[in-house]
């Protein structure tokens, strides 16, 4: 009896779906799974980029940094007529992201960006099936050449470099010689940044104390805020932190008049009076270079690394917060040292 019910349910649903889908089908967007064979490079057509991101386009951190870069490249190239951008955000579930990556490839996008290391496996599978489409992923260094793939770009950010510079600034600005770090999970980009930050502080002021805490999460805004509170109570007069959770911590810094150093995106808007400087990920150069390469017929093979030297990492000061000249000079010296290799940013 139950079997029959199930059959019936399936049948009815199929009918309903068919009824709904049929009349409207012609209006549907380009059908998925269309052959991706068409060559991308006709100049009159817009260049088409699709991006799949683990968090929101407005996270003021990892995802937003890349999305904003795409938008600014788009503006530079002359709007949607020249560069089309499609996005899928909050793809924290990797299976969903894998579906998105494959669909975008099937729809004939010229470049599909998988903006999260966890998407790597899925993206490699898709890249094998769509050799004419270009893919990019980060944080990563593997362009798949070992597997015989020629259509993958990889990108990463040397977060430790800007972390080091932020550390130098923090050490010199701190009067209490106590500095607090609000971290998410002790891994990946956040770990790089924090390791560099600690080294920067220690090289500048060996007797300063860097207190580090982790919330075990990327989005626990409330706990990140309380962590900032605890750091302040423990005597910190400069704070920094990483991931989208820090928006709560910046608010606490603002309320207590404690200085903040940002990373990933420019966080000045959240604390115009307390945000001293941000390490900003400037992906525009990377994006533009990838577009140029693809248009020249080179679909992958390059691993990009955002560094201070190549302008991918920018230390953006907040003009509303006065930074003494000697601090800026020390920061500039640190940047120069990192660029010429005389300073190592990791233990």
């Amino acid at each position: 009896m139950y079997r029959r019910l199930i059959l019936m349910a399936t049948f009815v649903l199929a009918l309903a779906l068919a009824a709904c889908a049929a009349p409207a089908a012609p209006a549907a967007a380009p059908a998925a799974d269309a052959p991706a064979a068409e060559a991308p490079a006709e100049t009159s057509d817009p260049f088409r980029i699709a991006i799949v991101m683990p968090s929101s386009t407005t996270d003021l951190a990892w995802s937003q940094a890349m999305y904003d870069a795409l938008k600014s490249v788009q503006a530079e190239m002359g709007g949607e007529a020249s560069l089309e951008i499609a996005y899928s955000e909050n793809m924290f579930q990797v299976t969903d992201a894998a579906a998105a990556i494959r669909d975008y490839a099937a729809e004939g996008f010229d470049l599909v960006i998988a903006h999260g290391t966890q998407y790597g496996n899925s993206m490699f599978e898709v890249a094998t099936d769509f050799p004419e489409t270009s893919f990019a992923w980060g944080t990563a260094v593997d362009t798949g050449t070992e597997q015989g793939l020629e259509n993958i770009f990889a990108y990463e950010a040397a977060a430790d470099e800007g972390g080091y510079v932020n550390g130098v600034i923090a050490a010199l600005l701190s009067e209490a010689n106590v500095i607090g770090v609000v971290g998410p999970v002790e891994a990946g980009d956040a770990k790089l940044y924090i390791d560099g930050f600690k080294k920067g502080v220690m090289d500048t002021k060996p007797d300063a104390v860097v207190n580090v805490s982790f919330t075990g999460n990327f989005g626990d805004t409330a706990l990140a805020a309380e962590a900032a509170n605890v750091h302040i109570q423990a005597g910190a007069d400069i704070l920094t932190g990483s991931a989208q959770q820090v928006v709560g911590a910046v608010g606490v810094a603002k309320e207590n008049g404690v200085k903040w150093l940002g990373t990933q995106s420019d966080q000045t808007s959240l604390g115009p009076d307390v945000v001293v400087a941000n390490q900003v990920y400037e992906w525009t150069g990377t994006v533009k270079d990838m577009i140029a390469k693809i248009q020249a017929g080179e679909l992958g093979g390059t691993a990009y690394n955002l560094t201070l030297a190549n302008g991918g990492l920018v230390i953006a000061y907040n003009s509303a917060v006065a930074v003494p000249d000697d601090v800026k000079a020390a920061a500039d010296a640190a940047i120069a040292g990192i660029e010429d290799g005389s300073i190592t940013t990791m233990e």
Binding site: L17, C20, A21, A25, A28, A32, A106
Partner: peptide, 16 residues
């Protein structure tokens, strides 16, 4: 209508 057509077509309209 465009959106829902994409929804149903997308889920059941093809192999993908």
């Amino acid at each position: 209508f465009t959106a829902y057509a994409a929804l149903f077509n997308g889920a059941l309209g093809n192999v993908s």
